[in-house]
């Protein structure tokens, strides 16, 4: 089989005489708006908030300012049950910048009766490799949040989700 260059090899290391490295160091600070501010305030208090559409009744967790189906502003806040269902998941076995030490599991989780999913980590499952993991985790697995002791109004105030003990 054809050998491919290892992902860790830096582009500057190859054909260096043809490369002109430069660095683009830019800082940004996003305005998050009122709905996100309120959601993150809830997270600090270990509460999960969502918003409902006045027209179709859909619930959005995390909250969405506008129901994209109806194109109306959502107006009703609800605190939802701290219970989720896995829609899909993946375990990552390679290291990527800005993400945890592998292996770790990322899942799309439907929280309470939300119409949309929240992406988050799942932990608390012992597995040696993917074969063992797929025996233990499925579409439909019920999960609950594990809160961080120190919370600062961030999506990672939930450390991860883990399967509900039956």
């Amino acid at each position: 089989m054809a050998d491919e260059l290892d992902p860790s090899v830096q582009t500057d290391a190859i054909n260096a005489e043809y490369k002109y490295p430069f660095h683009w160091d830019l800082d940004f600070s996003l305005n998050i708006g009122e709905d996100n501010r309120k959601f993150f305030e809830g997270m600090e208090e270990k509460r999960i908030l969502g918003k409902k559409c006045p027209d179709c009744g859909a619930t959005f967790v995390p909250p969405q300012a506008v129901c994209v189906e109806c194109y109306v502003e959502t107006d009703e806040w609800v605190e939802v049950e701290q219970h989720g269902v896995v829609e899909s998941y993946t375990a990552c076995f390679f290291e990527f910048e800005g993400l945890p030490e592998p292996p770790y599991i990322t899942a799309a989780i439907r929280v309470a009766d939300s119409d949309i999913c929240m992406l988050h980590f799942i932990d608390g499952i012992e597995y040696e490799d993917h074969d063992e993991l797929v025996e233990k985790l499925h579409k439909g697995t019920e999960v609950e949040p594990v809160w961080a002791d120190e919370r600062e109004g961030h999506i990672r105030d939930i450390k991860h989700w883990e399967p509900v003990e039956k």
Binding site: L30, T90, C92, T106, A107, F121
Partner: peptide, 24 residues
């Protein structure tokens, strides 16, 4: 950036539907 970027890079964007597709 507020929610989803914390948990994924491009490979998970490919893996999540692929894994769900296997199940169904």
């Amino acid at each position: 950036p507020l929610f989803e970027r914390n948990f994924v890079t491009a490979i998970q964007m490919g893996a999540l539907p692929s894994s769900g597709y296997m199940e169904i």
